[in-house]
């Protein structure tokens, strides 16, 4: 499947993946982040269940300390 991740096209060898799987495959290890699928915010507790499908627009934002 093909998705858009932070405005870039990404391909995965699966028909669908969960947010947790996507983070593992892409090796996104930094803990603090926000993830949106098609503009819907996915809460941290839902990462294992939220499914990313072909054509989805995924946006990920790292939350850095400092303010």
């Amino acid at each position: 499947m093909k998705i858009t991740l932070n405005n870039r096209t990404e391909e995965f060898d699966k028909e669908h993946i969960t947010v947790t799987e996507m983070l593992n495959i892409k090796k996104f290890t930094y803990r603090m982040r926000l993830v949106k699928i098609n503009s819907k915010l996915i809460k941290r507790e839902d990462y294992d269940n939220a499914v990313i499908r072909d054509g989805d627009d995924v946006q990920m934002l790292y939350l850095m300390s400092g303010g």
Binding site: L34, L41, L61, G66, G67
Partner: peptide, 24 residues
């Protein structure tokens, strides 16, 4: 930052939220 985003975006999905990330 995460707590506010999760709370505000689920309460008010259309309301603009302006975040800061990366300024050190």
């Amino acid at each position: 930052k995460e707590m506010l985003a999760e709370t505000a975006l689920s309460l008010w999905p259309e309301r603009p939220l302006i975040m800061g990330s990366g300024l050190a």
